[in-house]
Design a protein around this nucleic acid. Structure first.
Lengths: 241, 241
DNA sequence: GTCTATAACCGGATAGAC
DNA sequence: GTCTATCCGGTTATAGAC
């Protein structure tokens, strides 16, 4: 019922190739010059296709970024799955997943600024909470499900159920920080990860205490409601236009 | 050393008037048609000035929004100060300040979407964390200082010092939610305010417990560091033109 | 039906004359 | 301080080729 406007179908192998060519060229230029500095005209020229053609495959400049999200996620998964096999504590698993995410995104740091530019704009296809990003977001949250599943810690069911989503939101926050972080080698971000993962770990432990049950219930109900609201909002915002 | 690029100085009364005329016209059109739908050309025409002239007073379309922030804040303060006089609990004071903020912004709901559009973009003049918004942000945080000052609750010094900033961040989150909220009369947002204010209140109480001291210290150190990092980032990002 | 190219259009932004 | 004339780049319309 939703999501009727996917990317162009691309049925032929030739079209497939052209599409990939354009995307690769664009990402390369984004990496080198940044997003704003890269014009659609320049991408088309460098890829050796016409401007019209570029727009045939990507509905807008922003849609190129959507494709970028997907690419990043795929690379991340490839690294994360084998790494998780050897770890069994929440802290270690979480640390690994988040560090690897930053590792994967590193080459795109200067371009990444634009990723969150419209993260708050409901209309934008860039919005990771909006419908068009759904596939990537869902897949991304699933990764955090794996993180939680593989731990031995005793976590109350109610919390355990929401944890993947909460961790995903947390990881988005880290990415937001990283985007702005220009310290050498992103040292600051890695330090932030170390510290916050430790805190998150402590807080999960704390929240699992029977003594905290009322506050926990209250907070989780709120999280749930926030998520519902977010979904309603996206439903509304798919229609217009 | 920073902040050398203020808004145009506007020295003459005539310029002052033109500037105000343009801003008022723009805000009116934003309210009616939304931000994207309002072109600079249309604003200029309706205000009876040339396009170039509009750009003489406002360096970009986004700079008009900067002026909007200021307007909202001014109106908010006028309502908040007298209202606070009669209240002495944290919960009541916080509730009042945040509800009033939403009340003030209400007429601009449909336009407000754009406010956070670039909240994550370090380069944007729209970014409330960036330098150009400084004056408004500082003033806004001061309001939360007043909220905290006026309460009788026993709050440890370390927390008390950071609280205004934390509450400001919290209130930004509420605004972000409100922007996306299309429930009738923004009922959802007001409900969210009620619930989260209660939770915040509880958490302050909890965090004030001696038992929580280590975690609190840890968390506050982190907040401090985050803020420092944010400032560094802004310093870096002022330079590059 | 799949793909490619050319020529506009539109609106944000700037240059430079007055 | 104000205007006119342009630029520039995202986007669209359209016409056709395969």
């Amino acid at each position: 019922m939703a999501a009727m406007r996917k990317k162009k179908a691309v049925k032929t192998p030739k079209g497939d190739q052209t599409s990939k060519l354009i995307l690769d060229t664009a990402l390369e230029m984004f990496r080198e010059r940044g997003y704003e500095q890269t014009t659609m005209r320049a991408v088309a020229e460098k890829a050796g296709v016409s401007l019209g053609n570029a727009y045939y495959y990507f509905r807008s400049k922003e849609h190129l970024i959507q494709a970028f999200y997907q690419t990043m996620h795929d690379e991340h998964v490839v690294l994360v799955l084998p790494a998780l096999e050897k770890l069994d504590t929440m802290k270690a698993r979480l640390l690994t997943v988040i560090r690897l995410k930053i590792d994967v995104m590193k080459p795109y740091h200067q371009f990444a600024g634009v990723l969150f530019k419209t993260a708050g704009d409901p209309q934008s296809p860039l919005n990771p909470f909006a419908d068009e990003a759904n596939a990537v977001r869902v897949a991304s949250i699933q990764l955090f499900e794996k993180v939680v599943e593989g731990t031995k810690a005793r976590i109350p069911k109610d919390l355990r159920a929401e944890l993947p989503y909460l961790l995903w939101v947390y990881h988005m926050g880290i990415i937001l920080f990283w985007i702005h972080d220009r310290s050498p080698k992103h040292r600051r971000t890695y330090r932030l990860i170390d510290r916050t993962v430790e805190m998150v770990d402590k807080m999960i432990y704390l929240a699992s205490n029977p003594f905290m049950r009322p506050l926990r219930k209250h907070a989780l109900a709120l999280v749930d409601e926030l998520r519902d609201a977010a979904e309603d909002i996206m439903d509304q915002e798919e229609e217009p236009k």
